[in-house]
Design a protein around this nucleic acid. Structure first.
Lengths: 184, 184
DNA sequence: ACCTGAACACCGTTCAAGT
DNA sequence: ACCTGAACACCGTTCAAGT
């Protein structure tokens, strides 16, 4: 399954360079950043970029893999410190803020919910959701993937509320989602 | 404010043709449909398209204006038939389904929430939200615009749940939003 | 095995020339 | 006053030639 033969030294270097440049480019120009530009800034031919990453999606995934894994890893740290319900909420908040702050990651995680790249995120969501359900602080009839999709939707909503300072909007909309729009 | 001098007959015809073709093109190819293609199919030069609609956004808005007004108009009909809380929910559902079914309209309404084009939608949301709040079936601390943003987010979430038959997903996620993720 | 970059196709946008 | 379409700039993608 994994890479059997090690990559040639130059190929490995190029790949690395491309990932660095791509991460920066996507962060600053969004998911639509010019691939030609990325190749040029990385000092390689465009063909090389396509050889390593056949699609834009593949490059996006690879460029943000470590950041995504970092977010997934946060789940266990948070879970150790808080009650299950609060832990889920806090993690979803960090996920949402991350999606908004790092341009391009929202688009990636939107589809990545069902791709290989999002596996660790799905795993984290699974654990937090199950724990909260067992603790009785989350409806038992919601699936982890539904929670992830809704979190993505919340990030979208928060994004369009650009004016009032980014992160606050995620918290606000997330709490509306958790508590519900009906009066309690 | 409005058009003082009437348009020349050929200009008027071209505008009409462009709108028809654009609506079809956006519906079938999504918001990114080729403007060149639209002009060609409408039988006009590209320059004419740009003269009438300086930006893609302007064309999108104009092409879907009647559909958007139709959705806004539904609000009063629904409000006459149901209790305020249910009316809001039903209208948001129609709005969400519309955004998903007609490709391009979701993107438009996402930003249009704060543009001229979305004025009638905002008006409709205002009335339904206020009514539901007065009837005590909606939290008093949510703004109409927040409800619209969340509805857009819900549509985004439902869209990514492509498999299980479109419209159902909107209802599902909408009810999760309304009832909340916490157990009641 | 991998890299390069020219070549091709495509799209958005502008604008001089036309009626 | 409005239309046309060539011209320009830009981008994604492929692939023959090179090491």
């Amino acid at each position: 399954m994994a890479q059997v033969r090690p990559m040639r030294a130059d190929a490995r270097r190029n790949r690395e360079r491309l990932l660095e440049v791509a991460a920066a480019a996507f962060a600053e120009r969004g998911e639509g950043a010019s691939l030609d530009d990325i190749a040029r800034r990385a000092g390689v031919g465009v063909g090389t970029l396509y050889r390593h990453f056949p699609t834009r999606q593949a490059l996006l995934e690879a460029a943000y893999l470590d950041r995504i894994e970092a977010i997934a890893a946060r789940a266990d740290l948070i879970a150790a410190e808080r009650a299950p319900g609060e832990a889920l909420l806090e993690w979803l908040n960090e996920l949402g803020v991350g999606m908004i702050q790092v341009r391009g990651m929202k688009a990636l995680l939107g589809t990545a919910v069902d791709t290989a790249c999002g596996e660790c995120v799905r795993g984290a969501a699974d654990r937090l959701v199950r724990a909260a359900q067992e603790a009785g602080t989350l409806r038992p009839d919601v699936e982890p993937v539904e929670v992830l999709r809704l979190a993505h939707g919340v990030a979208t909503a928060a994004e369009s509320a650009a004016g009032e300072g980014g992160g606050t909007a995620v918290r606000r909309y997330l709490s509306l989602l958790v508590e519900g729009l009906m009066p309690r």
